[in-house]
Every structure is written in C-alpha cells, then in structure tokens.
Design a protein around this nucleic acid. Structure first.
Lengths: 218, 218
DNA sequence: AAACTTTTGTTATTGATTTAAAATAAAGTC
DNA sequence: GACTTTATTTTAAATCAATAACAAAAGTTT
C-alpha cells in the first residue's frame, strides 16, 4: 500500500517541514545517521511520534541503526513535492510582496519564483530581486504559458476573494494566502493561509495567560 | 471555576482569532445576534464545535436566542488579551520588517507597534510608517523604559537564537518569530512562529497529492 | 398563557492522535 | 559466530478532540 492511500492526518503533514529543516541542519553538520531518540531530544517531541509519523509514508529507517540522514531528508523532500520544481508567482508588489520576493528560503526549498504582479504602473517593468514586475492584466496568459502552479497572494483582503476565483480558473494549483480573507473557490484548489495577525493574537493569549498565572500566585 | 484552570487545548486557542475576525465582519454589517448554527454555516465548522469552544471560557450565549455579536466579540478580545494594549517592537528593518510595520491589522487588533530596530546606520534615524528606526544597541533600555511586551523578529535565522535569549532577559513577554530558527530561551517566554516556507511546503504537499490522485485515475 | 420552536450548555459518544509496549531485525562486540 | 545492544516496525492502549444527543431555558406564536 502506497502512503497516498493511507490518508495521512493534516497534523502529520504540518510536522514534516520542521523535520525537514532539522534534518537539513544535521546534514550540514555532516551527520550521517540519527535515531528517533536523538531527534526526539533535539526537537522536543516524543520519539514515538517521530517513528509513527515516518511510518505513515513507509519506514525509512533500519532497526539497530536508525535513519540515514541524507536518505530521510530526500524522502521527506519527495513526500512534500519539493523536487517537483513548482513555479510560483507573487501577486502584489507592495512591502510584503517585496519581502517575499527577497525571501531566500523559498528558493532554497525548491520553489522557483518567476515574477511579481501588480497594477501600479510605476512598479510594472522594474525588477525585484531580479524578478520582473508584470501588470496584472497579463496574468492569465502568463500563468498558462509558463506553467505556474502556485500563487502567493500579498495583497489586501478586499481584492483576494475575486482574484482567487480567477486564479483557479486559470489553472493555478495552489494558493499561499497572506491576507486575512478566507478563500473558497468554485473549482476546489489547495489553499494554505499565513494569518500573521492571528499568530499575534495567539501570542497575546499566551502572554496574558502567563501574566494571569503570575497574579494568582500572589 | 475560571477558564484559566481548564487548560484550554491549543487548537481551540488557534481558532479564536478566526471567530474574532468573523464576528468583526458580522458587527460591521450591523448584525446584533447570531446562533452557533448560522456561524457554523458561514465558517464551515460544526455548530457543536463552536459551542464547545466558547464553553471552555464560560457560556456567552443564551438558550433560544443565540449569541450577542458585540458581546461575544468583546469577550473573545478579552480572552485573547487584545484589550491589554500590549506594545510591540519590530526587530529588523529589512523588507519584511518594513512590510510588518506597514501592516495595519496589527494595530487594528489592539497592538501598538512603537519602533523598529536595526544595525544599519543608513536606516537608523529614519521613520517607517511614522515609527522610528532605532539602533539595536539601544534596545535593552528601550524595552525596559517603554514597557514593551512583544518582539516581532524579522531578521535572519542566524541572529535569532542569541537575540531571543537576550530579549527574554530584558523582560520581553512574547516573541513573534518570522525566521525559521527554533527559539528556546533559558527563561521560558511565549513564542509563536510564522514559518512562511513551512506553509509553502505544506501547500506543495497538497498540490502533489492532488496531482497524484489525478494520475491514478487515468 | 399554553404550546411550540429555537438554541444554548452540557454530557455522552465516536473518532483521531499520541504514547506506550511488544515483536523483530540489524549492528556491534567479544 | 553467538550474544548483547540498539532501534525500528507494528500493534495495542490511552489520551485528546470533534461530533452528536438531549435537557433546560428563552423566545415566538396563536
């Protein structure tokens, strides 16, 4: 049975990038092998969970030896599709779009950001981190002609909903959404949200909790 | 029993900002009351979950009536600590730091961003969205004198680990971390991570899954 | 104001995820 | 080369979270 049939829980998927990052570090430090126990210590998760997680995709380790770091690293990359060379565009060349265009880690993870899109005539025609800024009206053709899989949305909430619908029609496979808008398209596509202010609110809760606990002790 | 004693699951906390956003929209549209059923339809979660979630913090609704939108909205703000007026600084005045400084939603949610910090002499002394850019060497005093609770880290991974440790010592209560570094401080403080490239990897997985399912059908 | 409807708060049930334990296989050691 | 150790795989148990069910309370209708 291939892992595709196993219906891997979303929580497990969300842990994979973290494993991947850690293994990358191990690799950079020249470590050849690692056991679930060692990995567990460093990442402060249970060894049991690590083994279980990897087993959703078929065992990559060897009893008595552990996991071969490089092999495991590559396998996770495969699972995540990082070897597929997905191409992405950034929509919105404001501060956030620019920040994302300069964000090296996307390319480090195997994604290729080919262009930015904006409606601002002053920005169109310029380059950001060597990537061209193109006018929004050209996006349909661009996506179709260049086999773009991913749209990274760095624009205001108000414009996102309508745009997402169009992008799905143009054949975009997935959206990385930085706005606080909820995306739901007629043609269902993959969506991943990065709600920055949600994270700040969650942080706020944790701080408040900490403060309250302190107060109670008095 | 106060909700603080109930040990609310993290998953529930993470849903609160989303409820909060939705209720904000309802409020803006002048809706006075809403039932868990209605909210459930709009947000595509079960009504049961909504009621259960709110009940962790004590019932805010009334049988036969539903929830008063404004009251619930304010209660969630209280739970999340959004009324506490936490002050934050952004560390790193690069593209991302600038994007965050211009990101209106932080202030809309009750946080006050008072300054940015950087080591670049060309940036120090300027203003970004009317907030001063201050040299990093002044951060300790600034945090202590201005009662800063939150540090938003928008700088490279390599600098984050050492910095986080220092910030905890200076009395920072929570860190919103935009780098891929894992933060673990001697003095334990609240940390929330926004791993942008992790999200992209998760998205990649979903796209790949979709593509593979398509292939299998053939 | 009685009957009926709505809708919460709460308890019970089901399902998912995590942790632990047992079984197994490879690696290291003497 | 047999024996011990290490560490995975696999199965089972326990914990945690989501959903469903329902009694109680409030609102609505006649």
């Amino acid at each position: 049975m291939k892992y595709k049939d196993k219906n891997v829980p979303e929580v497990v998927i969300k842990r994979l990038p973290r494993y991947y990052r850690y293994l990358g570090e191990c690799l950079a430090q020249g470590e050849m092998r690692i056991s679930s126990g060692k990995l567990s210590e460093r990442m402060s998760v249970t060894a049991s969970q690590i083994r279980q997680d990897f087993n959703y995709f078929g065992g990559f380790g060897q009893q008595g030896y552990g996991y071969n770091v490089e092999y495991l690293y590559n396998e996770i990359a495969n699972i995540l599709g990082l070897k597929n060379g997905y191409k992405a565009v950034i929509i919105g060349a404001g501060h956030l779009g620019m920040a994302l265009a300069n964000h090296a880690s996307f390319e480090k993870r195997g994604f290729e950001i080919t262009a930015l899109f904006d409606v601002d005539e002053y920005k169109v025609g310029t380059r950001i981190n060597s990537k061209p800024v193109i006018h929004m009206e050209k996006i349909e053709n661009y996506i179709k002609e260049n086999n773009i899989s991913i749209a990274i949305l760095a624009l205001p909430k108000s414009e996102v909903k309508e745009l997402a619908e169009r992008l799905a029609e143009y054949g975009i496979k997935g959206i990385l959404n930085f706005s606080s808008a909820e995306i739901k398209t007629a043609k269902p596509i993959a969506v991943e949200n990065v709600h920055m202010s949600d994270s700040l609110m969650t942080l706020s809760y944790k701080i408040k909790l900490e403060e309250d606990e302190h107060k109670d002790k008095k």
